[in-house]
Simulated assay, not measured.
Amino acid sequence: MEKHVVVIYPHPDDESFGAAGSIAKFREQGVPVTYLCGTLGEMGRNMGNPTYANRETLPVIRKEELINACKALDVDLKMLGYRDKTLEFEDRSEVAANLRQIMDEIQPSLVITHYPEHAVHPDHNALGAAAIEAVRLMDSDQRPVVWAQAITNNYYDVLGKPDIRNDISDFFENKMEAILCHDSQAAGVLGQFKHIDKLESEIQEDIKERFSKEEFYTWKFED
């Protein structure tokens, strides 16, 4: 059993779409989970559906949604305070040092983050790379295991199949609850999930199939 899990993603909702099922499973086992969220996603394009946010109110709304999702998942939240869509321009060594300092205090046995260059968004790639660098800088006998999540369309072809494939079917409802906490982002795409029990059974099964598996690569450090 893990001692403590740290999840490192750049945006509110990354934790819910990316790893909520695995997080819920860890919490059921009694494993503490801490989410280090890089930004408030204040430059996001989605403003609710129908629109109810604007550029000034969006960070406030997304912060509240993030807090609610973390409450739903029963995880500790630490907001890192970086600016959305600028992580790729931050000094990676400084970000890594900041992450390492936090992890030295928490001492996780497992870190979950994005797979650099295979995570679509520049913020995903940058914070994933910084998280992995932070772990690399630790003494090899004290490093937590790193699960890196790839989400590009061709990552199977480039990286092969992930070695961690979590069936989170039993935690599907937990994942949906967390995702739907991010209403400003999820309403348009996943609004139908609020009434999933009313959808045709074939559509229900397709949704559950797509969202009941979370995959990660165990990062290999070269020493």
Rank of each mutant, 00 (worst) to 15 (best):
L36W: 12
S184H: 09
L58K: 11
I112Q: 15
K71Q: 09
F26C: 11
N46R: 09
Y35V: 07
Y115H: 11
G38T: 10
E177D: 01
I61L: 13
S16N: 09
A150L: 03
Q204E: 07
Q142N: 13
F193D: 03
T34M: 14
R27M: 07
V31E: 05
I61Q: 02
L36Q: 13
T113V: 10
I196M: 12
G48W: 05
E64L: 07
H114K: 13
T51W: 00
R45T: 13
P59I: 04
H4S: 10
K78C: 03
A53Q: 01
N49Q: 04
G44H: 01
G41I: 02
F216P: 10
D84I: 04
Y156S: 06
D197V: 08
V135S: 04
N46S: 08
A53H: 02
N174V: 07
P162H: 07
M176S: 00
T39C: 04
M43A: 00
F211D: 11
L80W: 04
F172G: 15
H114S: 11
R55T: 14
A134W: 03
M43V: 00
F89Q: 10
P122F: 00
D104R: 04
D14N: 05
L199M: 13
L40P: 04
A96M: 02
P162L: 08
Q149K: 12
R210Y: 03
P59R: 02
D167T: 00
E65I: 02
D141P: 08
V6N: 14
E2P: 14
I106T: 04
I196P: 10
N154V: 13
Y115K: 03
K63I: 06
K220Q: 15
G38W: 07
A19P: 09
A178T: 06
H11K: 03
